[in-house]
Amino acid sequence: MQPKSATEIYVNRRQATRPQSPLLSLVVPVFNEEDVITHFLEATRPVLNQTGLAYEYVFIDDGSRDRTAEILSQELAGGLPGRLLGLSRNFGKEAALSAGLEAAKGDIAVIIDADLQDPPELILQMLDGWRAGYDVVYGLRVDRSSDTLMKRSTAGMFYRLFNRLANIDMPANAGDFRLIDRVVIDALMKLPERNRFMKGLFAWVGFQTMAIPYERPPRKAGAGKFNYWKLWNFALDGLTGFTTLPLRVWFYGGALVSVGAFAYALYLTLRVLIGGIDVPGYASLMVALLFFSGVQLLSIGMIGEYIARLFNEAKQRPVYVLQDVIEGAPANVDAANGQADEQADVR
């Protein structure tokens, strides 16, 4: 019999300590989702009822300008368990996720988008993984045919570049759709940074993880909120937030260019001493001048990216500002416990 690995020992130990009737928080950031939010509720309610657990919705309205907040307020007033956090403006999805996780009361939280590109049915499999002892169970997109070729290509390049440069291992094609244990939530809430790249933070805090592959369908309704400019800035935040290698690249690049320039200057000196005075050409002089000017501007720009992030951190502004909180019905813990007992009797 082979000895168990450290991972197996940890997972078995965590499995033994799982609560029998945990509270499940469904964390849902929304931004102008009036076309799809009703479909989302219709799709998630049956799945959450199948879990046999007490649950709550935690919606984060990230400055919507349509009827999203109105629709959710009506649902909460009609008995939907959970709450709606209204941010004072659009702070971005990363800030909205931070607000939702901070407000979640559950022993476990499932992060999911409202566009139904992440199948709610996978929540049941995620719960099985959690009960087996894993702290993080994430959805792994094996088919992104619903995305454009450009988006698939750039996403693949970003994941490869990030994992090569950063000192953490972020699973490729793993989005925000995941189940996380309370111990992971508490660890994430201890991270004070303002420029938050949640996919990287999920990987940075560690813990034992499990992947569930799935095919990502197209949006149920509405339109996506990310454009290529936002995705570029998102990728830049991720890289600069988890690695200083770009700064080192310019350091070594500058050293290499300096050595080359010194060698070339020595060559010119020797050529003049041996062969006589030589007048250099204008074209070669301009090419060298423009090239090195470009290198200097790129290096200064890279340094500026890091300085800008230091500037934002030094101001210590909050990640988000809450405008209001609309409470719905409380999670029906007793009813969920009764349903779980009935299912256990049947088994």
Rank of each mutant, 00 (worst) to 15 (best):
S5C: 13
A6K: 15
A6F: 15
A6S: 15
T7M: 14
E8I: 06
Y10I: 15
N12I: 08
Q15F: 05
Q15K: 11
P19F: 12
P19N: 14
P19S: 10
Q20C: 00
P22A: 07
S25G: 07
L26K: 03
V27R: 08
V27Y: 06
V28F: 12
V28S: 10
V30G: 05
F31L: 11
E33P: 00
E34Y: 08
I37E: 14
I37R: 09
I37W: 06
F40Y: 08
N49A: 14
N49M: 13
Y55V: 00
Y57F: 13
V58R: 05
I60Q: 02
D61C: 07
D66R: 12
S73M: 05
Q74K: 11
G82A: 10
G86C: 13
G86I: 13
L87V: 04
R89T: 15
R89G: 11
K93T: 13
A95W: 02
G100F: 03
L101G: 00
E102Y: 00
A104P: 08
K105N: 12
G106I: 05
D113M: 00
A114E: 06
Q117A: 10
P119Y: 04
P120R: 08
Q125M: 07
L127T: 02
G133C: 00
G133F: 01
Y134C: 10
V136R: 04
V137D: 05
Y138L: 05
D147W: 10
D147Q: 10
T148K: 11
T148W: 12
L149E: 09
M150L: 14
M150G: 06
A155Y: 08
Y159T: 04
Y159S: 12
Y159C: 10
Y159F: 15
L161W: 00
F162Q: 09
N163P: 03
N167K: 14
M170R: 04
A174S: 03
G175Q: 03
L179N: 08
I180E: 01
D181T: 01
D181H: 07
D181Q: 04
D181W: 06
R182F: 07
A187T: 03
M189R: 01
L191A: 02
L191Q: 01
E193N: 09
M198W: 03
G200V: 03
L201M: 06
L201A: 08
F202R: 01
F202N: 01
A203M: 08
P213Q: 05
E215P: 05
P218M: 08
K220H: 12
A221V: 02
K225W: 14
W229N: 12
L231H: 02
N233R: 12
L236V: 13
G238F: 07
T240W: 00
G241R: 11
F242N: 09
L247S: 04
R248M: 15
V257K: 13
V257L: 14
V259C: 14
L268I: 14
T269L: 15
L270W: 15
R271N: 15
V272K: 14
I274V: 04
G276W: 06
L285P: 02
F291H: 09
F291Q: 04
F292V: 13
F292H: 11
F292R: 06
S293F: 06
S293I: 09
Q296G: 06
L297M: 03
L298W: 00
I300A: 13
I300Q: 11
I303G: 07
E305K: 11
Y306P: 06
F311A: 09
A314T: 03
V319A: 13
I326M: 07
A336M: 02
G338W: 01
Q339T: 07
A340Y: 12
E342A: 09
Q343W: 05
A344Q: 12
V346G: 04
